[in-house]
Nucleic acid binder design. Structure first.
Lengths: 238, 238
DNA sequence: CCCTCGATGTTACCCGTGGTAACACCCTCG
DNA sequence: CGAGGGTGTTACCACGGGTAACATCGAGGG
């Protein structure tokens, strides 16, 4: 067919990849994941299967043979990257520090993790970009694991009285979401060094918002007529 | 033609819809939005344009004439629903209450808002499900507006010293993300009544996690062999 | 030596979805 | 009676996920 060297993207250099132990038993799979990784790093999530296949120097069906479907591929890809961050956070949560120091340590660990791999970080937070099925909550699986880890740590380390279980569960999610949103903003705007951000978040958790002095109410209280409570309850749909 | 009554989904009852003022000047548009609303409520985001068109009893091109493209439709749809929630939160933020009461009020307003329309709530938090372009941050536009509103309120009402701007910006995002994640979890599991959840979140912001007594470190420090620090840093790319 | 087996690879196709072009209808206004 | 604008339609295209069917090649085993 003489197609030997047609338009295969940037293939034929899958050798010096080097991956973890898993490569020893499933080398091809790892190579494909590495290719996918490159494409995602370049095109973000939502990269097409065709693009990934081309980058790997092959065609779609092989990808599907190895990963079943697109979400399978992305799940595998995500898990590779999740492991490190999750383990790091877990370790930080287990360290025997004074509470404030420990919280700062965990916050710093997370921020450092997402700082190190900004592109991939999108994968962890938006795994389902591109496949509309199963929207499933705000927290991606990776984040949900972190939330559970926090819950576990709080349950084990802090005395919250009879409502402990409820509080630690709620707080696990709350803290995760808080760090997620704040970290996302920080990563995008870089308004301050990491340590400063850690302080800001720890301060929030330490009730600094609650404790701070109030400012005097400004003189003109209602300058703009905001069109009172327009459709506050929206379409009642008769 | 004789196509009069072929396969048009559930059309010909667009009359008793009842919508806001905007319907007076752009009635067709409102009807289409109502149809889209129904479909999204039923199929979640990621509903296809065809499905929406069919539900409205028409075909795709008309949708595109009115909204340009898919994201235009969803943006219009989102704005309709955002208005109420945003206005409510804004009002709650402007109320002259004691700080703790005000925070509780805002939290309760938000939770009540998402509680009232769980299906649509997905729209606000996952507007880009189905269109992989422009992933753009964790916080959807609607949430970003809320975050800015919180930032504004904190800036105006709380004395945070020289770092005020940074802190209020960071905290605006952080609090929004916190309530988003916690609210999402609460909405899905309903582990407690709303008022309880409000308390839990306010307590967190009030530093209860920081202030609570520690639990004695459990006797057996390493009961489960957790497979020590597997691939802590993941792919080191040897 | 041949022949099966499994992994690797390909071409060609299906279907659904976003998006568009071109044409038809009707109703109103000058 | 036209012109124009809103409403509607039938195709059609490109592209992305996913699959069937066929081709190849190396390793064993009778």
């Amino acid at each position: 067919m003489a197609v030997n060297e047609s338009g295969r993207g940037s293939a034929e250099r899958e050798n010096e990849e080097g991956a973890g132990v898993t490569a020893l038993e499933e080398p091809r799979r790892e190579q494909l994941l590495n290719a996918a990784d490159r494409v995602v790093r370049r095109d973000g999530p939502g990269a097409s299967m065709n693009a990934i296949a081309t980058e790997a120097g092959i065609t779609k069906p092989i990808l599907y043979r190895h990963f079943g479907d697109r979400s399978g591929l992305f799940q595998a890809l995500t898990e590779r990257h999740t492991a490190g961050l999750l383990a790091a956070v877990r370790a930080a949560l287990a360290e025997p520090l004074e509470r404030r120091e420990q919280v700062e340590h965990v916050l710093d660990t997370y921020l450092a993790g997402i700082e190190a791999r900004p592109q991939v970080y999108q994968l962890l937070t938006h795994p389902e970009a591109g496949d509309p099925n199963g929207v499933g909550g705000v927290l991606a699986p990776a984040l949900r694991q972190i939330a559970e880890e926090i819950t576990r740590a709080v349950t084990a380390q802090v005395d919250l009285g009879p409502d402990g279980p409820l509080l630690s569960e709620a707080w696990g999610r709350a803290i995760t979401g808080m760090v997620l949103a704040a970290g996302d903003w920080w990563l995008e705007n870089r308004p301050c060094p990491r340590a400063r951000m850690v302080q800001a978040l720890a301060d929030l958790l330490w009730g600094r918002l609650a404790a701070a002095a109030p400012l005097p109410t400004p003189p003109a209280p209602a300058p703009e007529p905001v069109e009172p409570a327009n459709t506050l309850d929206g379409q009642a749909d008769s």
